[in-house]
Amino acid sequence: MDGDHAVRAEGLVKEYGGKETKRALDGFDLTVRRGTVHGLLGPNGAGKTTAVRVLSTLLRFDGGRAEVGGVDVASRPRQVRRRIGLAGQYAAVDEVLTGRQNLEMFGRLFHLGGRRARVRATELLDQFGLADAGGKGVGKYSGGMRRRLDLAASMILTPDVLFLDEPTTGLDPRGRGEVWESVRELVAAGTTVLLTTQYLEEADKLASRITVIDQGRAIAEDSPEGLKRSVGGDRIEIVVTEASELSRAAKIVARGGAEPVVDEEALRVHAPVADRVAALTDAARTLQDEGVAVEDIGLRRPSLDDVFLQLTGRAA
């Protein structure tokens, strides 16, 4: 395995026993370049959290191989743990303690010693924009502040690789934005982040590459823009006011040479276009000239929702 990648997995298998053996990971492959955010997307039960737990040494795997930070996960798990941080779906901080006390406690658990733990707590409170709140009880923190404190706790030893398993679950948009900014700052400082999330906007904004996992296997990997391009280019979309107008709108869109798709339930017609502006201008003019009552008209580019739906057959 080469040194350009902070995380690399080849053919990972994880089975759960019982009456019927189930494979949570079924030949899973993953490569994460150093100093990047790599998104791991998939439906519920696809294997995202299992992959993180395997790579962070919390679960033993049954086949394949994996390295994190250049260290073999199976044969040298303790060395791997010295190189990683992990923040799960829910904040692991103590709400009774202050933010500073939480970080000092984590520092002592990592054997930093009292003085070094205090120094490191101060550094992290500053880094994550929590210096003014360090003396407050965590129970008084907002959701975003609590998650930032949780991220800070996972960075006590300045890990090479940080695993974030759905880090903004349950946060409002403001809290989510605070966590995103903290993640960007970590990566700018050299940390590699493997991010699992069900918020497609989160992966789109943070990740330079995304792996889509389904039924324990990686089924696609590319940049966010590359994944979007894989499901098609720009489309013109028209929403009419009455179902009786759908056929007329479809005929107008078809003049551009593409076969329109009609969604009767949503009263929508859409089709791919090559020349975005010309197609929109021509359609708008013709709709007006022919008196077609339109609720909305516009150009739409594929989103990660479209990618998700096409690859997995399920909406995100």
Rank of each mutant, 00 (worst) to 15 (best):
Q215F: 12
A153N: 08
A316R: 10
D2C: 11
K205N: 07
V80M: 01
A91I: 00
P43W: 14
L12V: 11
V294W: 08
P43T: 05
G190L: 01
F110R: 12
T57S: 03
L97K: 12
S223V: 04
T241C: 05
L200G: 06
Q310I: 00
A218E: 05
V261Q: 06
S230A: 13
V292Q: 07
R217I: 09
G143H: 03
F61K: 06
E225Y: 04
D4C: 10
R34K: 15
A131D: 08
A92M: 07
L55P: 13
D165S: 03
R276N: 06
A24W: 02
E265G: 06
A203S: 13
V96H: 15
T21L: 05
G232E: 00
T191S: 06
T281C: 04
L109V: 01
V253H: 01
T50I: 09
R23W: 11
P43S: 10
R148Y: 12
I297C: 15
G257M: 04
V294R: 04
L55F: 09
T49L: 02
S56W: 08
G143M: 06
V71Q: 00
A203P: 02
R65M: 14
D289K: 13
R235P: 03
A92R: 04
R53P: 07
I238E: 03
G170F: 10
K140E: 14
E242M: 07
V119R: 14
L109D: 09
L171P: 08
L171S: 07
T286E: 08
D2F: 08
S303F: 08
G64T: 14
A284P: 00
A117K: 08
T286L: 15
G85Y: 00
G64H: 11
A74V: 04
R285Q: 11
E185W: 09
T241A: 11
Q101E: 15
T312V: 01
V119G: 08
T98A: 05
R300D: 08
T281Y: 11
T192S: 06
F163C: 02
E178N: 11
V193L: 01
A6R: 03
V7E: 11
L171V: 02
R184G: 09
A249C: 15
